[in-house]
Computed example of a mutant assay.
Amino acid sequence: MKTLLKSGIAGLSLFIVVSSAHAEGTIKTALDGTFAPHAMPTLDGKVEGFNVDLVNLIGERLGKEVELTSAQFSGLIPALQAKTYDFLAAPVTVNAERAANLLFTEGFMDTNFAFVVPADAPEYASLDDLKGKTIAVNKGSAYDSYLREREAEFGWTVESYGTNTDAVAAVLAGRADANLAGATVAAWAAKQNPQIKLSYEIQTGLVWGLAFRKDDEEGRNLIDKALECLKVDGSMAMLSEKWFGVVPAAGTTIVTPSKGYGVPGLEGYVEDDHQPSCELN
């Protein structure tokens, strides 16, 4: 499903002026259209979500149209390498293994884990506060593994479900004290249901970035600058509030430009002293 998507966020008119080969034409990009709230299908057959808005704002800043394809995540990286897409709009966790094969922009968001608990539950300030609790989780996920690896240490009971939706339903039904998922997925669940709330967040130290082919440093750097623009002009904070119901804390990745291009400390990072701006030459 290939669709031309226009941004629905008004009032943001800053524009990046560029003079490279990437300055004209259409951005061809793709994501998994079933990863709510980053991308999800609409009733009219399109996709919406945080990353859909993000890539359209990038297109606006660069004065380019966005051709966005919704596809299965497993096929995105091979299609990128085959030059079907210019880059991936999907949230991809940046790690050493992936950085060895792909170029990444700076992080646009931290990839933390977060608990969801009943709305009337006490405030949990640490993992110790969750000792002995029953925690529902999506079976086979990274969150499932995280909990089971620490089950003996914290004495919690891990209940695995086929989907995270089912795991959240267990909390709503009182069969579990909490649900653990990705922070944005947890925030989306809490935003949709007033019977639950966000709770303790586990810092992973990892970020999501936008992925490019190794031979497209120019394109990566251009989109990296566009991300910086969206951080400094407040657009990223607006997207966070719109899709997650969360006002980003100062210093977090979603509102804080990184020095240079890419993710510091990983392959493909280029140190540079350019200043984040929405007016680039």
Rank of each mutant, 00 (worst) to 15 (best):
H274S: 12
V207P: 01
S19M: 09
P41S: 14
D44G: 05
I202K: 07
V55L: 13
A71C: 00
K139L: 12
A99C: 10
S258E: 12
G268Q: 08
N193W: 06
C229W: 07
A136Q: 08
F244S: 04
S277W: 02
S160C: 07
T3V: 15
N221P: 00
A178Q: 04
T93L: 15
T184V: 05
D272L: 06
D272H: 10
A176W: 08
S199G: 14
I27M: 10
L68S: 02
W243A: 03
W156V: 01
G174R: 09
A249Y: 00
Y85F: 15
R61K: 15
F115L: 12
G162R: 07
A170F: 09
D120W: 03
Y161A: 03
S145T: 13
N138V: 11
A183M: 07
G268V: 07
T69G: 00
L4A: 12
P264Y: 04
L54G: 02
L222H: 02
V66P: 06
T253G: 00
P194F: 01
A211L: 07
T184C: 06
G262T: 08
L127S: 04
A90I: 02
T204K: 07
T252E: 13
T165Y: 11
D224K: 01
A36P: 09
D144R: 06
A186Y: 05
A99V: 05
R213E: 10
